[in-house]
Nucleic acid binder design. Structure first.
Lengths: 338, 338
DNA sequence: ATCGTTGGTGCAATCGTTTGCATGAGTGAT
DNA sequence: ATCACTCATGCAAACGATTGCACCAACGAT
């Protein structure tokens, strides 16, 4: 037996579908007499009526659905972010559609298109590159969207990102205070704002302390693997740094692996700092000192921003920066004198 | 300017919308002359036409959308599962709608309803309890669904779960081989099939070796916190076990914490085995010995099963069990003689 | 008694597709 | 030349809701 529709409810209640629709809708129930509302509600209950949101969406040209594109849910950085977004979305009656893109522009494009075809009311993107054609097209099409974690170089866009430069300053300051003077950096891909801004922030913080820039390298991705590959260039530099700031926690783990492979131990031979303070990073050996970003809040704020953009498309696109916080653990310590 | 619809395309190509629809659809393009198909395609390209899947879904009574309910994406067990499901779904042209329920039946019910209102073609549930009203309703409504990771006690349902009993046998055998004779268990909530089956499997494996059942306790959830709270009952038993098998990795971490708090070290004073072999569990200190479950495969198989159920609703509901594998690491070792 | 107002309801169009059926042109067999 | 078919296309009715507008009854004010 097919599920009941509005017409069935209306027939049972002895009213027109228009009246039934109004009676069932919070916003319009005031137009209908209280007795009728009651009668319609009873009929709906009796039939187990549930509104068909697809039909409603077609008519209202609003799907109450938001798409979210992330590189990879399997990367422990993202789940908290997704959860933050999901929670505020649900609170507002929206549904989340999720897709992973593996940082592949083709996949991003494809998923973006499918989501638009599904008439999502807006998009949450954690996949931005500094120059991003996928995003340019979104701007051109005037689709409401908010960038999360990463942003683009130019154009007024809505974004919620960590204060990357401030985070790097915290990291460098901590190492400086512990006595480190030769500090290296294993950065992330500079095609992303996180990679670029963190590298900049690192250099700026060094300069602020009057230190020479230490050896740096660029990891090809924000992954353990990429960190492992990039690290030797820094660890093996002529004047080996006594400390390394990594672009994020996964890269830091890669650096840790590389150090291990070179027979260097952490923090005795080299201190290492990560970025994000991912889940479980505190239980590794050694527990990683990291620049904490509230990932949940990142997602939550982005969703809220998107909702306001959807409600009022003419509202100002703004970039929100979340303040980082340093969490000191076992992977950093004073340099060994030599 | 509103995005182009089929009528616009048809007008530009000089044909009826029906013809345009057929021309653009792979399946029906054969009904239309090749020249017309070409003309319609060009018109569609020129206008940047994208099909409105909401409208299509309404007409076809198929949304090509699948809902997935999980307890909490933030729990490192789930991301790989979600990813597995997502990948096979996308491959088949379906979209994934995700929701977290925090193991709260009310939330499960609410999300289930919203998803049905959104006309999802089927549901993937990682939230099952052994007796589950939410699921009973799904059966009654004849909605295609597949359970993942956990299943229900009765009724023919489609499910993809790990072979919990076999997994526990692997764990117990390993400990036995290392010389352990007094083995305890910190189980998960027995309202779930995982909790119940693993506890059963544990006892059965002991009996198979002719061992007395060691001390056991039931954690209130599959979390570190719950493991920490339940562990003392086992660790503090009159005859302290030399090894403990935990219901999953998070519970194992809780047990580890509790042991630590009691001044016991692992694996010297007590060996600990987890279940699932979650991401990063190999990098903790000590690296956890665990019963490996292929989480990605769990999600992938469940999605495939669901797709076949959607394609043919009358097809047989079957339970697929995935074989576990033991991964031995630093948290287990021979018992210390005393 | 008349008129304007208000409140409740119904009518019908509409959102953008898909699809069963009708139609008409062209083709080949008889 | 006729008939039966096939092929390509158009027509119009859905799918299940929402909503602007029209309508009508009741009511209070003058």
């Amino acid at each position: 037996m097919a599920p009941a529709n509005l017409k069935d409810v209306a027939r049972l209640a002895g009213v027109h579908t228009a009246t039934a629709s109004r009676a069932l809708n919070e916003r319009t129930a005031g137009m209908v007499s209280p007795e009728t509302v009651e009668r319609v509600r009873e009929a709906a209950d009796a039939l187990g009526y549930r509104v068909n949101r697809v039909a409603r969406g077609l008519k209202m040209r609003r799907s109450f659905t938001v798409g979210m594109l992330i590189p990879d849910i399997t990367n422990p950085f993202f789940p908290r972010m997704v959860r933050g977004a999901e929670d505020s979305l649900h609170e507002a009656g929206f549904t989340l559609v999720l897709a992973d893109t593996d940082n592949d522009p083709d996949q991003e494009r494809r998923h973006r298109d499918v989501m638009l075809e599904r008439q999502v009311d807006g998009l949450l993107l954690a996949t931005a590159r500094r120059r991003d054609r996928v995003i340019d097209a979104l701007i051109a099409a005037e689709v409401p969207f908010v960038l999360v974690n990463r942003t683009v170089d130019r154009g007024r866009v809505a974004a919620v990102i960590p204060d990357d430069r401030a985070g790097m300053a915290l990291a460098v300051e901590h190492l400086y205070a512990q006595g480190h003077r030769r500090i290296g950096h294993v950065g992330g891909p500079t095609v992303t704002s996180s990679g670029a801004r963190r590298a900049e922030g690192f250099l700026k913080a060094l300069r602020a302390r009057g230190l020479e820039p230490g050896p740096t390298a660029e990891a090809q991705g924000f992954t353990i693997e990429a960190g492992r590959e990039a690290a030797p260039a820094v660890l093996g530099a002529a004047a080996r740094p006594s400390a390394i700031v990594a672009a994020n926690d996964l890269v830091a783990l890669g650096v840790l692996d590389a150090a291990d492979a070179m027979g260097l131990s952490c923090p005795e031979d080299v201190s290492i700092i990560g970025f994000n303070d991912m889940a479980f990073i505190d239980r590794l050996s050694p527990p990683l000192t990291s620049v904490r970003i509230d990932e949940y809040e990142l997602g939550r704020r982005a969703a809220k921003l998107l909702l306001s953009l959807i409600a009022d498309p003419s509202s100002k696109r703004k970039t929100v920066m979340l303040a980082p916080e340093l969490v000191v653990r076992g992977s950093t310590g004073p340099p060994t004198l030599d």
